[in-house]
Design a protein around this nucleic acid. Structure first.
Lengths: 117, 117
DNA sequence: CAGATAGTTAGCCATGCAGCTAACTATTCG
DNA sequence: CGAATAGTTAGCTGCATGGCTAACTATCTG
């Protein structure tokens, strides 16, 4: 079950890379500018960018001697969707429990059936 | 800038662990049941659970010789929020670009000001 | 053209993580 | 009590990942 979400989430599992995404959310930027706030060597940083690009979260193109990096909306939304879906299921379950609790409060004599419809 | 999101996202960067979360979204389960669908050794699987638990995405308690695992809503929501926030910024930017494009279409004579209010 | 600037490639090291087997502890059940 | 069940711990392997320096290419700019 190894799919594209693997690379999205593990790419986001690193603070440097998340910071890059956060920066790119407000607009494209060249490598140098993205690198500046991070206290790591450029080649190391470059590899973070490659991870982001390999995951599809980011694209880049070279303009002269500068490489401009920009965010890719789709994958970010896909990761968000996965989380939202899990939350919905989870909340749906809570809702059902709430409803059950409510029902039990109103009428403590009738026990719930434990079927799974 | 290493915060709790690191562990959330990297925990979710593994298909086995994401499958566990997906399963747990619809209710708590014992270790054995969670393990069953995965074709890996139990100790290996156990370590995935430990990663999830260390990240706070999951809690567990021992009942007799069985360990019941259940999802923890908060962290999942936190991860989702981070993504949502990035998307909002990104979309806000797109909106601004759209508005700009629209304005340019309506009136090509007046150039946009490039202030950043 | 020469020097500065912006990335890029190569190669090394340490740590972490996923996988395994073997052997052990703790509970439950007949 | 003794066997079965459910986890757990220990210890090993191999590969991926994050960090570095050194050396290189490609593109401006004076």
């Amino acid at each position: 079950m190894a799919n594209y979400l693997d690379s999205f989430f593990s790419a986001l599992g690193d603070p440097t890379r998340r910071a890059v995404i956060a920066r790119l959310a407000s607009g494209p930027a060249p490598v140098g500018e993205l690198h500046a706030p991070h206290d790591i060597a450029l080649p190391t940083f470059l590899r973070h960018l490659k991870v982001l690009e390999a995951s599809g979260l980011v694209r880049s193109e070279k303009v002269g001697r500068v490489r401009i990096v920009h965010i890719e909306a789709g994958p970010l939304a896909a990761a968000e969707d996965w989380l939202t879906r899990q939350r919905r299921i989870w909340e749906g379950r809570l809702d059902r429990l709430d409803a059950l609790a409510e029902r039990l409060e109103r009428d403590e004599t009738s026990p719930p059936d434990d079927k799974d419809p």
